[in-house]
Design a protein around this nucleic acid. Sequence first.
DNA 1: CGTACGGTTGAGTCCAATCAAGCAGCGTGG
DNA 2: CCACGCTGCTTGATTGGACTCAACCGTACG
Lengths: 193, 193
Amino acid sequence: MHEDAPAEHFCILIQGSAKLYKLLPDGRRQIVGFGYAGSFLGVSAPEYYAFSAEAIEPIRMCRPSRRGLLRLLSDSDAMRQRLFEVAVNKLVLAQEHMVLLGRKTMIERMASFLLFQAKRPQPRGVLPPRIHLPMSRGDIADYLGVTLESVCRSLAKLAKCGVIALPNVHEVIILDLSRLETLAHGASRECVS
Amino acid sequence: MHEDAPAEHFCILIQGSAKLYKLLPDGRRQIVGFGYAGSFLGVSAPEYYAFSAEAIEPIRMCRPSRRGLLRLLSDSDAMRQRLFEVAVNKLVLAQEHMVLLGRKTMIERMASFLLFQAKRPQPRGVLPPRIHLPMSRGDIADYLGVTLESVCRSLAKLAKCGVIALPNVHEVIILDLSRLETLAHGASRECVS
DNA sequence: CGTACGGTTGAGTCCAATCAAGCAGCGTGG
DNA sequence: CCACGCTGCTTGATTGGACTCAACCGTACG
């Protein structure tokens, strides 16, 4: 799915995960969100896609044609209702993301990101305090509006002071949830070293 | 209108302008958008307001109760349709804003902001290449995710190299639109000094 | 005339970016 | 099986752009 391409299909993710992003002419990238099983992609597509999307893991999806979707919408009140809810929900998330990008420090961004991921239902086999992150460090960086190196450093810092553990590259264990929450909302800019 | 307060009213701006923002516990503020005559406020309010809103100039507005709105929605197909379009449009703007906050430099942010304002229909008496900015420097700063001082400096820089003129604090004249566009999209990080 | 407030400008600091080197996992092929 | 190279991740050193702190300006208003 490519930004500015005509929006011929709607898309519902059944399995796997994807990244949704926008590019600047010189290649700088901002990931505006991730899609997971159950996510609706292409809601913000009146005529042309507003962003590009790419799979992170192998995915399965349902991709009705735009015409088919419109027919579905005109038939079903419930479907219309649901789609509106999805759009509103995305809007609320986007506003939260703007605060993160505009006003939070590196550590606050990382803490917020981890908390957000922790609140999502994890794939089977991954238990609560453990988070599975399918995306690369570079993807996380472009989501948080920082560099890949800064992502590494902030993760290392959080690990060093015992807030999280990093058993392997794609997994995080939250050791001290309340501290992570304090850091995320940045109440007091407290020391993490 | 206050973040996290129960969303009892919907709100449509008739005249004037407002800022929509979210606060962090320590007072840092991110303006997530501005509202102008015709704007729908409170779309992203399923139960509680997702953000705070405050008038910039004296305003007139239509503020139906939540119940009244719901009745209106169940009656009118066109109204439902319109509200969905508004939400989708806000979502697209939010994604654009995320790119600005996460990936653009100071000058690019200011150029993008000015262009966005330039594309809005201006209040009567203000002709095309001239933009009226009702908000304060601090408001612009919180919209762009920078400090008030950086806003001043970037405006001064753009003025010094002849891209814009600043007849007074609340007005900007665009002298070189194409250069402003180049700067906004940051194709080449070209020099502005 | 004096104060207050928003805006502008300057000097110095700091956090994250950049540049650079090194490491770990892993599939490939000798 | 292991050396090889590739890719993605980590860590260190240095730089730089925006922030912070501070002084100053100008307009509005009592």
